[in-house]
């Protein structure tokens, strides 16, 4: 589904990603871990198509297409979804209006009829239940004045609404209390099918108890330096990153 080859990315002339290789197939869950500032969010942003990131080398192939030639919105319409680490507040745009516009544009792109008001509301209600989001929240402006946890839950709600093929959840667990973590994880599991794939970026093994990954990667110094099974996450939890750094330095 997603194939990243030798991806090099710079921000304002500074190289952040230094040759990332990654392959994800339908039905899989991958976890990406790694110390702060190693480029995990950068990778997510580049996949989303955010401006300001220069891809100097390599490519990203998604469903057989080169993503670099695709606009931000077309990537979303092709089924890519990023649960952002820091969701933006948009005062004055209601979640309902936002989701209805998004959903209908995606449907149009796929040659489907738009949902009418009643159909849309039914869908909203159904999906709100997935993440136990209250009406009080969904009537408000996008993320405006939301607590950290509420923002993350709103990201998963949007994911539930848009039913993406490839979801990248960037630290969706940070800032969540235990109950919210369970709700969010259940939401993600509920949405999982054999045809879609998920990448969870996280610092904590905790989340991976709920969302069990097929593959765990460690991103360090702009590269994926280690790949393993879910046991790798447990090991990182116990031992930290020092041994990874040492292995990486001595291999250089």
């Amino acid at each position: 589904m997603l194939k990243i080859e030798n991806l090099h990315v710079s921000i304002k002339g500074r190289e952040i990603l230094k040759g990332v290789d990654l392959q994800i197939n339908a039905g899989e869950v991958h976890a990406i871990m790694g110390p702060n500032g190693t480029g995990k969010s950068t990778l997510a942003s580049v996949i989303a198509g955010k401006e300001g990131y220069d891809v100097t080398e390599g490519r990203i192939i998604y469903k057989g297409k080169d993503l670099m030639n695709m606009s931000i919105e077309d990537r979303a319409r092709e089924g890519i979804f990023i649960g952002f680490q820091y969701p933006v507040e948009i005062p004055g745009v209601s979640i309902a209006n936002f989701m209805r516009t998004a959903l209908n544009e995606i449907r149009e792109y796929r040659g489907l009829d738009p949902l009418n008001g009643a159909q849309f509301l039914r869908l909203m209600n159904e999906k709100q239940k997935v993440v136990e989001l209250t009406d009080k929240l969904s009537n408000r402006s996008v993320n405006e004045g939301f607590s950290g946890g509420e923002k993350k839950r709103n990201e998963i709600f949007q994911m539930a609404m848009l039913e993406p093929t490839l979801s990248i959840l960037d630290e969706t667990d940070s800032g969540l209390d235990i109950d919210a973590l369970r709700i969010v994880a259940n939401g993600v599991n509920h949405l999982k099918t054999k045809d879609n794939a998920t990448i969870v970026i996280t610092h904590y093994q905790r989340l991976l108890d709920y969302i069990v990954p097929d593959v765990v990667h460690v991103l360090f110094d702009g590269k994926i330096v280690k790949t393993g099974t879910k046991e790798l996450a447990l090991e990182l939890e116990k031992r930290g990153y020092d041994w990874i750094k040492e292995e990486y330095e001595s291999a250089k």
């Binding site: 989303a48 979303a76 319409r77 507040e89 936002f98 998004a102 949007q158």
Partner: peptide, 14 residues
């Protein structure tokens, strides 16, 4: 710009 990106990343045209 950040808000613009966020909206577009959900499939909304520029």
């Amino acid at each position: 710009d950040e808000a613009l990106f966020y909206l577009r990343s959900r499939g909304i045209s520029e």
